[in-house]
Simulated assay, not measured.
Amino acid sequence: MIQVTPDITLDENEIRLYFVRASGPGGQNVNKVATAVQLRFDAARSPSLPEDVRARLLRLAGRRLSTAGELIIDARRFRTQERNREDAMARLLDLLRRAAEAPKPRRPTRPTAASRRRRLEAKRRRGEIKRLRADG
């Protein structure tokens, strides 16, 4: 079990890791060794996620989400499979923790009497300037 937050845990079986060849620099090594990691997590159907967290995760995932509702994280930053695997897991956990935070409810506010007074005074001054310009 992977602890995401105090009340959310993921079963390791829900995460699938695929190792692929990375592109970019690395010489002959890059052509021979599958060091890049593709992590896949079925966010749309995961039994570990509460419904509100799932909705926020799907919104946060953006283009990392497949049409089937699968979250795909590509990690190819490092030259070793192990470091890329850790990087992919860290990125998944970071995304899940951000989705677990409930948004702060917006409380509507009203302008203070002083700010209303300042606004109207500024409008009056501007109108006065324009009126004087028209008369002259």
Rank of each mutant, 00 (worst) to 15 (best):
V33M: 10
R85H: 06
R124F: 11
R117M: 09
A44E: 08
L71Q: 03
R83E: 15
R16G: 06
R40E: 13
T112D: 12
G27S: 06
I8L: 08
Q3R: 09
I2G: 01
M89D: 02
A99V: 01
R97S: 04
R106C: 04
L17C: 08
F19E: 14
A88F: 04
R110N: 07
S23W: 00
P47Q: 11
E101W: 13
N13E: 14
K32Y: 11
A100C: 01
R98I: 00
T35A: 14
L57Q: 08
V20Y: 08
E12G: 06
G26K: 00
G27W: 01
L65F: 05
Q3M: 07
P25D: 00
R116G: 09
R110Q: 10
A114R: 09
R131H: 13
V37C: 14
I2S: 03
A75T: 01
R131E: 14
P47F: 15
F41T: 01
E70P: 02
E128W: 15
A55W: 03
R125W: 06
P108Q: 08
A134S: 10
R83D: 15
E86P: 00
S46C: 13
T67C: 04
V30S: 14
L71D: 04
Q38N: 05
T9C: 12
E14L: 05
S23L: 02
T9S: 11
E14P: 04
R117D: 10
E14C: 03
E14R: 04
L71R: 02
S48N: 07
L120E: 15
V4T: 01
R40V: 06
R126M: 05
R119H: 11
R91Q: 09
N29W: 12
I8R: 06
I129V: 08
P103N: 03
L60A: 10
P50A: 10
G69S: 06
A102W: 05
Q28D: 11
I129H: 06
L96M: 02
R124G: 12
E51A: 15
S115G: 01
D42V: 03
R40S: 11
R118Y: 12
K104R: 14
R40D: 01
G62L: 04
M1D: 11
E51Q: 14
L132Q: 13
I8Q: 08
A36N: 02
V20K: 10
V30F: 10
F41W: 08
R117Q: 09
A99N: 03
V33L: 10
M1R: 03
A61K: 04
T109H: 11
R54H: 11
G136Q: 12
E70V: 14
L58W: 14
R131T: 08
E51T: 09
T35W: 04
L95F: 03
A68I: 00
L49Y: 06
A55E: 15
E128T: 07
P103E: 03
A22S: 15
E86M: 04
E14D: 13
A134M: 12
A122N: 07
A99K: 01
R64W: 06
K32A: 13
V33P: 05
N84H: 06
R118Q: 10
V53C: 13
A88N: 00
Q81C: 06
L95A: 00
G127R: 03
A61C: 08
P108K: 08
M89I: 01
E121I: 02
A43V: 05
K130F: 13
R133A: 12
Q3S: 10
Q28R: 08
G136F: 15
G62C: 04
K130V: 10
S48E: 09
L71C: 05
T35S: 15
R98Q: 12
